[in-house]
Design a protein around this nucleic acid. Structure first.
Lengths: 227, 227
DNA sequence: TATTGTTAGTGTCATAGGTACACTTATGAC
DNA sequence: GTCATAAGTGTACCTATGACACTAACAATA
C-alpha cells in the first residue's frame, strides 16, 4: 500500500473519532452489558465495547444510534452521551478520540434480536467482566457510576422495564443496580409519592401467589429529573 | 502557505477535534465568562469561546488546560469536561468535533493576568452575552446548567473563592449563580452542618461595621460530592 | 464620646420526608 | 383445606428544611 491511495488529506493532523457504547440491560437479575469480540488487532480476540468510526455526514448521537442498532437490532431506546475519552495513547494504532455513550435496553426487548450476525457478541454481568480492550474498563466504570447516580435523581430506572410493570419489578431494578436491598414499604411510599406512575388496572399472575398490580409511567419515554 | 500539499493523509476521512472552554468567574457580583474576538472567518469579528485544535501528542484535558493558560495566564484551577458537541454542520469549514470543558476562576486570581496579549478578550455577564459564534451559545447554556446543578450536590462553590473567605462571600456565590436570595441563618446552618469548612481564627474588617470571621475549606482543591 | 449606618452573627418552631419495622392477603399446587 | 409464595399495607420516630427578627461590632462623624 502506498500513501498515494490515502485520499483524505488535511493541512493539520486530525485524530480519528469513534463512538463506543455501553449497552446495559438487566438479565437474570443482574446488571449486564454487551461486549463484542474483536476480529482484528490490536486486542484481536479480546472483548471490547461495541463502537465504530464517525461518518463525516452524521451527528455524533446518530453514530452512536447506528452502532447500537447494528449490534443489537434495537432502536428507540434511552441513549445518553457519557464522556469523551481522549488520552493520547489510548489506541496503539493512531490517535483516537472516543465519545462514549450509554444505552439502556428494556428487559422485554432483549430476545427479539439476540445479537449481530457477523460479529460474536455476548452479555456479561457488570460484576464479572472479562479483560477489556483499550481503556474500555474505565469507560464501563464511568458508565456504571453515572447509572447509579441517576437512579437517585431521575426516572432512568423505568428504561429497563416494559411499558407495564409491577412495583416489585421496579424495586428489583433499583436493588440490582445498587447491589443492595431496599425496604418494600418505604420503596412503595417513595415511588408513589413522586406521582410518576399509575395503575393500569391490569394485574399479572405468575406463580402460586397473590397477583401483582401492573403500573405504567405517566410520561413514557421521557427521563426526567426528580427530587 | 509554505507547503504545497496537504501532508496529513488518512484512509478514511477524519474530523478536526477542538476543545472549547467556558471560563467562569464572579466579577462585580455577577457570574461572568471569558470570550475571545475572532480574528478569522467564519464569524470574523464576532465573539466566541476560547478554544483550539487538539495536538496529536496531548491528552484532551491537557489541550483544554493549554488553551486556558494561553487565554488567561492562569493554571491549576478547577477544570471539568462538560460535553462533546458533534453536530455535523456545526462548523461551516469542515467537520469539527468540540469537546467542551468549563473552568472556574477564583475572584482573587483575576487581576494577575488580565488577558492574552495577542487576541482581544473580555469578560461578559452570563445574563448579557452577545451573539456567539458557532453553537457556542448552546455550549454556554449547558455549562451554566451543570454549574447550577453542581452547586446543590458538590463543593464546587469554593472554587470561586480565595483560600480564606467569609460566610457572606460564600453565600454570595450561591446567590449569584442561582440568581436568587437565600436566608442567611438557614444558609449558615446548612453549610456548617456539612462539616466542610473551619474558621481560620482570622477576621476581615472592611468598612465601618462588624468584622467577619474568615473560613477555609477543610480539603482545599478537592471538589467533593455532598448530600 | 454619643450617634448613626452598615454588615456580621444568632435560635425557635412547624412541617415534610426518610427510616425502621411485621403482619395480612390472594393465589396456585398438591 | 393446607401449604408455599409473593403482594400489599401503617405507624412511630427522627432529621432536615424553611420561615421568620433581633442583637453585636465596628468605623465614621458630629
Amino acid at each position: 500500500m502506498t500513501t498515494q491511495t490515502k485520499q483524505f488529506c488535511y493541512w493539520h493532523p486530525h485524530p480519528a473519532v469513534t463512538t463506543d457504547i455501553v449497552i446495559f440491560t438487566i438479565r437474570d437479575e443482574k446488571l449486564q452489558l454487551l461486549l463484542i469480540r474483536r476480529r482484528n488487532p490490536p486486542f484481536q480476540g479480546g472483548w471490547a465495547l461495541p463502537g465504530g468510526f464517525l461518518n463525516m455526514n452524521e451527528d455524533l448521537a446518530d453514530c452512536a444510534k447506528r452502532e447500537l442498532e447494528e449490534e443489537t437490532g434495537i432502536k428507540n431506546v434511552y441513549l445518553e452521551q457519557l464522556y469523551t475519552f481522549g488520552k493520547h495513547d489510548r489506541d496503539p494504532r493512531e490517535r483516537v478520540i472516543s465519545v462514549a455513550y450509554y444505552a439502556l435496553i428494556p428487559s422485554d426487548r432483549l430476545t427479539l434480536h439476540p445479537a449481530s450476525d457477523a460479529t460474536e457478541a455476548g452479555w456479561f454481568a457488570y460484576d464479572e467482566l472479562p479483560e477489556l480492550a483499550f481503556d474500555h474498563r474505565e469507560i464501563t466504570r464511568t458508565a456504571h457510576e453515572r447509572l447509579v447516580a441517576k437512579l437517585d435523581y431521575s426516572t432512568i430506572a423505568f428504561q429497563f422495564l416494559p411499558k407495564q410493570f409491577t412495583l416489585s419489578e421496579l424495586q428489583d431494578v433499583y436493588e440490582t443496580i445498587r447491589s443492595e436491598p431496599m425496604d418494600k414499604r418505604n420503596f412503595r411510599k417513595w415511588i408513589t409519592a413522586r406521582n410518576l406512575i399509575e395503575a393500569t388496572g391490569n394485574e399479572r399472575r405468575n406463580g402460586s401467589h397473590r397477583p401483582a398490580q401492573l403500573f405504567r409511567t405517566k410520561r413514557p419515554g421521557r427521563v426526567e429529573i426528580i427530587r
